[in-house]
Structures are given as C-alpha cells and as structure tokens.
Amino acid sequence: MARIPPPVAAVRTAVRRGLADLPEDALVLVACSGGADSLALASAARFARRRAGLVTVDHGLQEGSDRRARSVAAWARDAGFDPVRIETVSVAGLTGGPEAAARTARYTALTTAAAELGAAAVLLGHTRDDQAETVLLALARGAGPRGLAGMPVRRGVLRRPLLDVARADTRKACAALGLAPWEDPHNTDPAYARSRVRATVLPALVDALGPAVLGNLARTASLAAADTAALDELAGAALEQSRSEAGLSVAVLTGLLPAVRGRVLHSWARELGAPGGALAYRHVVALDALVTGWHGQGSVHLPGGIEVARRSGDLVRVVPAHIK
C-alpha cells in the first residue's frame, strides 16, 4: 500500500479533527476559490466525509472571475462533490475597504447557502500562516486581546480546520495529489496590507527569528481567544449586575476590573445602537472616564448619534430635547 505523503496526511487529519463532533451523514460544504489552501481542504473533505458539497464565490472583482468559478465548480462535480454551487455576490454598498466588503459578501453567501442546503458546517481554508498574518495586522493597528485572538476556529456554521496547518503543506498536498491551484493576483498585490505582510514582514521575521515564529504567532491567537472568551463571560454577568432603572450604576462599574468594565461599556454602547464598525477604543475610554475620572464633564458622543452622560450616580442615555 502506497504511503500517504505527509502534507496530504496533515490536511486530512486536520479536517477529521475539525469535524469529529458531526454525525457521519451530516452534509459539509467546502468554500473553495481554487487556490492551494481551499483546494487541498476540499480534497481532504471529500476523502474524509460521506457527504461533501462545495461552494465557490464569484465576487466579480477580477476579469474572468465567472469563468474561474465555473472551472472550480466543474472540477468539484467531477471529483464527486454534491451539491456544487456558484454564488455570485456584489460588494456594492458594503462598508469597509475592498477586502472587508468582499469578506462580508462572501460569508453572507456561504451562511445563506448552508441554511438553504441544510449543511452542518462550511469549511474555510485559512492556514496557520493566515492566522500569523492576522495577528501581525492586529498588532499594527493597536488591537486589544480580541484582535490578537485572530480568526476563530468556529463561528456559527463556519469552521477553519487548517489553522494548525502550514501554507507550505497545502501547496505540497496539492502537488502530491496532482491538483493545479489558481494563484490569486490579489495575494501578491502590494496595494493590500495583508499582501505586504505576506511578502515582506513574515519572511523577515522568519529570517530573524526562525520558522517557529509562525506557529508562535498562531499560538498567541489561540491563547488570546481563550482569555477573551473568559473575560467576555465575566463581562456578560457584570453587565447584568450593573444595570439600573436609568442605565448603568456607576457604583457597580467602579468596582469592576478595568478589563471587565471596558467590555461592559462596549457591550452597553452596542445595546444602545452604536454600530460595531464605528465604535472605537477612544469611545470606550471616554465612557470609562465618566466612571473613573468624573469631574463634571459633559456628555460622551458615540457613533450613531448616541449621547451618554453621568446623572445621579448612573450612566444614562441622553434623549435630545427635540425628540422628547
């Protein structure tokens, strides 16, 4: 019996572990662009699962993207995937830069497809290298623990079973299996921050610190994710304890650990209607100053036209006079 090449075995093992909690007959979908990571993932899922389908998303952002999507779908049908779907999306009107808008459109399409097809999971092909890049980008923008936690292994129906697998191994797996990956030109386009990190920053770190730096960065994400989950749980309970008839009790908030209080204030601001994409660190700091640095200052203005003030020992939302 021929020996399975180690990179192929690594990808297959990761997929099996990532789906170990699902019944054997559960439908699993693979999100596949045709790149090495998602192609290796798709092959492993087809090998490991009785029911494996595939979804390829056409963002319409590159010339010939529709032809590539049809090519990926044709390969999937020949390989025995069922069902196979092409999802065509538009990024028009979506917030954020082109990468963020494309990601939002893609994940919406994937979760919708999963719901319509009754899939138990949608597999994404992000690797250990992708996680390392995510951590570095989070550090560069001054993100806190939530940003350093990187991409979660699971979020809803989406799963990332390859976060412990090196990008080099997905390429080697494709070569061993005779698969021809598509090379996305966006991955080498210096207009994108992630592409610059991939092309220059990570190689420089590996040269300076050794190849273990990639795994260490990914491990940092795992540790930060666990800590963040614990703090979020504490903050959820603290938010309920802090509630008053008017808003939030300053006395209760004062007694909270700063890390917990910051999360409570962030969650409360979201409850009031502040959009998450616009709610920044400085807004939470300003709210915290109403609790810990009170000297009679005026209201704090949050995104979404929300105004918060300290009144009679509570943080309260201020209702403008013209709508009272």
Rank of each mutant, 00 (worst) to 15 (best):
D288R: 04
S299T: 14
L110T: 00
A114W: 00
H186F: 12
L110F: 00
A26G: 03
L279H: 10
T88D: 05
V291E: 00
F47E: 15
T112C: 06
G147E: 05
L163T: 14
A149W: 02
L29F: 03
R263A: 07
A230H: 14
A274V: 01
D164A: 14
A230I: 11
R282Q: 13
R263D: 08
V122S: 01
V260I: 15
A119W: 00
A45I: 04
T292K: 12
S249A: 14
S244D: 06
L158I: 07
V206W: 08
S90P: 05
V197G: 07
V284E: 08
V201Q: 09
S299R: 12
I4T: 15
H186Q: 13
G276M: 09
L124K: 02
A278Y: 10
A259P: 01
R103T: 14
A173N: 04
A69K: 01
G147M: 05
E233R: 14
V264K: 05
Q241D: 15
L61S: 03
H126K: 10
D21E: 15
E271G: 11
R67L: 15
R12E: 15
T108C: 02
A173P: 00
A121G: 01
G118M: 08
V206C: 12
E183V: 13
A204N: 10
G296A: 06
A259I: 07
V308S: 01
D58Y: 01
G144T: 07
L123Y: 04
G298E: 11
A132Q: 08
Q297E: 14
V15R: 03
R12P: 02
L239C: 09
D130C: 10
T134Y: 08
G150D: 05
W268C: 00
A113M: 03
E24R: 14
D129W: 01
P7Q: 12
A224H: 06
G178Y: 06
